[in-house]
């Protein structure tokens, strides 16, 4: 079972209590009525779907109910850190030990399987 650290409950809790809630740090435009359709589309619909390190909103739905942000590796499913909503994106270089790289392929993931 995956454990996720909730920055509001201040402890690790089972993934069963959480829901993913899309990308984090998407700035809401201040001039929405004056935007071009293309700019609005880019803000509202288009996401990068990154392979590797992503910043996401998560919600501790069946817990404290709060939204928070997480830095997560979409390949290994590893949570590198979580932090309260409204805080800036953490420095990527501090998130991962220098030796630890994203596992790039399914074969690489499974070759170590015992």
């Amino acid at each position: 079972m995956l454990l996720i650290y909730c920055p509001y409950c201040e402890e690790e809790r089972s993934e069963l209590e959480f829901r993913q809630a899309g990308d984090a740090h998407i700035a809401r435009p201040t001039n929405m009525t004056e935007m071009s359709d293309e700019d609005f589309e880019a803000f509202f619909f288009l996401r990068d779907n990154i392979k590797g390190l992503t910043f996401e909103r998560w919600r501790h739905l069946n817990g404290c109910g709060r939204f928070f942000n997480a830095a997560r590796d979409t390949v290994s499913d590893k949570f590198l850190t979580t932090y309260k909503a409204g805080l800036p994106r953490p420095d990527v270089s501090t998130l991962r030990p220098a030796t630890e790289a994203t596992v790039e392929t399914y074969e690489a993931t499974e070759s170590n399987a015992k």
Binding site: C9, R13, S14, L16, E17, N62, G63, C64, G65
Partner: peptide, 8 residues
Amino acid sequence: VGACSRTV
């Protein structure tokens, strides 16, 4: 004792 939590 006294601990509480919303959970599943």
